[in-house]
């Protein structure tokens, strides 16, 4: 992980030498390379770490609560819901400050995920994997359609959306400085939820016997999911498939105990997003690729692999 962070500091639109990197880290002065590393790459790396950790944990919680190996915050309409909330307000108000923008993104993500969960439960026995994903895809497409209509109609909304979509640079860092308490709160809730989730894996009856109230544990889990994925969306723009990939990796490494899997998926998610961000800078030189695109290129094949497996994984 430390190696990945260093790599992310090292590789940019112009690659720094190792000496320049050491110089910037340990004895900064006003050199160009120092400024590039400290002012641009460092905030960007921190943002990617935070967003990745949040998405990783959100993915683990979603998969754990829905017992659905292909559930994923990005597939539940959260990204486009946040985008829709941001642009529809920006139409009237003009470009937004980090704080209101973050709140809007959160609100949009919450609304979209509640709608998807709500419709996904139509059969009354909890959402089946395919239903959740399909409803998520439909809500995503619906929001995406409205978003692109709005940004084509309004200059201000387009500006806001573009800043948000490439948000991983300075913009995201500002939001991170404003929003880190949310990351802490979300992580706290997720950790508090670990024991309940462990018990719920045994079924709701056994969980009750172990002294866990299912609705309360589910409520905490949903709150954590929404907080974390809303945060990630606000910081790093729309990223899909990361929250799908990470829990599978984390479960493989850390076993079945959510007290370990949840922090583990935070680490894996942070690592993966930083690496994807670096890859995005390397693949599309001298420009760069939005990190969401890189993650989708890695995550979509994995999604196909999981979906195709004959025996569904038990989560």
């Amino acid at each position: 992980m430390i190696a990945a962070v260093l790599l992310s500091l090292w590789i940019g639109s112009s690659t720094s030498s190792i000496a320049e990197l050491r110089h910037a880290l340990f004895s900064p002065d006003e050199r160009v390379s120092d400024i590039a590393i400290r002012e641009i790459r460092w905030p960007r790396t921190v943002t990617a770490l935070a967003a990745g950790a949040a998405l990783g944990m959100a993915g683990t919680l979603i998969q754990g609560h829905t017992r659905n190996p292909i559930a994923e915050p990005g597939l539940l309409g959260i990204n486009q819901g946040a985008a829709l909330a941001i642009v529809s307000v920006a139409v009237f108000s003009g470009p937004l400050q980090p704080w209101p923008q973050a709140l809007l993104a959160l609100g949009g993500a919450l609304a979209a995920s509640l709608i998807v969960f709500g419709i996904g439960r139509v059969d009354g026995r909890g959402a089946s994997p395919i239903t959740l994903v399909l409803v998520g895809a439909a809500v995503t497409a619906l929001c995406a359609g409205v978003v692109s209509a709005i940004v084509l109609l309004s200059e201000a909304a387009l500006e806001t959306l573009r800043f948000w979509q490439v948000g991983s640079v300075v913009q995201g860092y500002d939001s991170f400085l404003a929003l880190w308490p949310l990351l802490l709160a979300g992580t706290g809730l997720a950790m508090a939820n670990a024991r309940g989730l462990n018990a719920l894996t045994l079924g709701e009856d056994s969980a009750r016997a172990l002294g866990i109230t299912a609705p309360r544990a589910r409520g905490i889990g949903l709150a954590a999911i929404v907080m974390l994925s809303g945060l990630a969306v606000t910081l790093a723009g729309p990223i899909a498939f990361l929250g799908l990939l990470v829990p599978h990796v984390a479960r493989r490494i850390f076993g079945a105990d959510y007290r370990w899997v949840i922090p583990g998926s935070a680490v894996c998610g942070a690592l993966l997003l930083v690496v994807a961000d670096v890859l995005g800078r390397m693949l599309a030189r001298p420009g760069e690729l939005p990190v969401g695109v890189v993650v989708a290129m890695l995550g979509a094949p994995f999604f196909i692999y999981v979906a195709r497996r004959r025996k569904p994984v038990t989560v």
Partner: peptide
């Protein structure tokens, strides 16, 4: 349908990449 959705997402991501290239 699931495999198709995954493939669809993959193609969309690759298309955005190509458009920047």
């Amino acid at each position: 349908v699931l495999v198709g959705l995954g493939m669809s997402g993959l193609c969309a991501a690759l298309t955005s990449w190509m458009l920047t290239l």
